[in-house]
Amino acid sequence: MTDAAEGSVRRRGRNETEEERADRMWTELIQEVRVAQMGVQILFGFLLTVVFQPKYDDLSDADQTIYLITVVLGAVTTGALIGPVALHRLVSGRRVKPRAVRWASRLTVLGLVLLLATTACSLLLILRVATDDGFVPYLVVGVVFWYLLCWFGIPLWTRYHHTSR
């Protein structure tokens, strides 16, 4: 190919080794996890205090069950979103970063799904306590749909329509 022809060829992607790509992806992943971790830690911390409030005893059995499910979801979500940090620390220096990035990415996506469930249950509980209206389940479903759209729908649509094949 001539220099002129090479100049007209449009390059796609980055010119990086597998290790360089893993380093970059790890850095990006950790920045993303920090945002999600902050949200789940604040929510989980709040949830842990509810049981110690005098009004907790006044909750119906159904609301107490929703609360317990929400707390367990919060704990599991926290584990999934902190998992990538532990994974990195325990495999650091073992030359498995590309595999570690894949596992950390899976844990992060799982953490986002669990965060969605935790947030939905929290919203359900709060709205059930705040109002007796029958629209609460519909409102929660609407919020869950919004989260699904923002967190998964738009990113997957973008991935499908704008990823070079």
Rank of each mutant, 00 (worst) to 15 (best):
E16K: 09
A104W: 03
L107M: 03
A117F: 07
A62C: 01
G93C: 10
R24Y: 08
V101A: 01
F44C: 06
T118N: 09
V35L: 15
D58G: 10
I30P: 00
R95N: 14
V109A: 07
R34K: 14
E28Q: 14
V109Y: 13
L43Y: 13
I82R: 00
V9P: 01
V85S: 06
L116K: 05
R99K: 07
R11C: 08
T108F: 10
I69Y: 00
V72S: 12
R12E: 10
T49I: 12
P98H: 06
M25K: 12
L43H: 13
L73M: 15
A75Y: 15
R102S: 11
G93W: 00
A86K: 05
G93Q: 06
L48K: 15
D58Q: 12
T77I: 02
R106H: 07
T27C: 00
N15R: 09
A75E: 04
H88K: 12
V40N: 09
T49F: 11
E28W: 14
A80D: 04
V33A: 12
Q31K: 08
L48Q: 11
V9R: 15
T70C: 15
I42D: 03
Y56E: 01
R94P: 00
L116V: 06
M25P: 00
I30M: 13
W26T: 10
R106D: 07
T108I: 08
L90D: 08
S105R: 00
A62N: 08
I66M: 01
A62G: 05
K55W: 14
A75L: 15
G93A: 04
V85T: 15
V33E: 01
E18C: 04
V50D: 02
S92C: 01
V76T: 15
E6V: 08
I69C: 12
T77K: 01
V109F: 13
Q64E: 07
V96Y: 04
A62P: 04
T78L: 14
G7D: 14
T108S: 09
R34N: 09
R95V: 04
T27F: 05
P98C: 08
E19G: 10
A80M: 07
A80R: 01
Q64K: 12
I66A: 04
V113K: 04
R11Q: 14
R11T: 10
V72K: 07
R102I: 14
V91M: 15
T17C: 05
P98G: 10
E18N: 14
V9N: 06
K97A: 05
Q53L: 12
Q64H: 07
S105V: 00
R14E: 15
Q64N: 07
N15C: 08
V51C: 05
V9L: 13
L107G: 02
V71K: 07
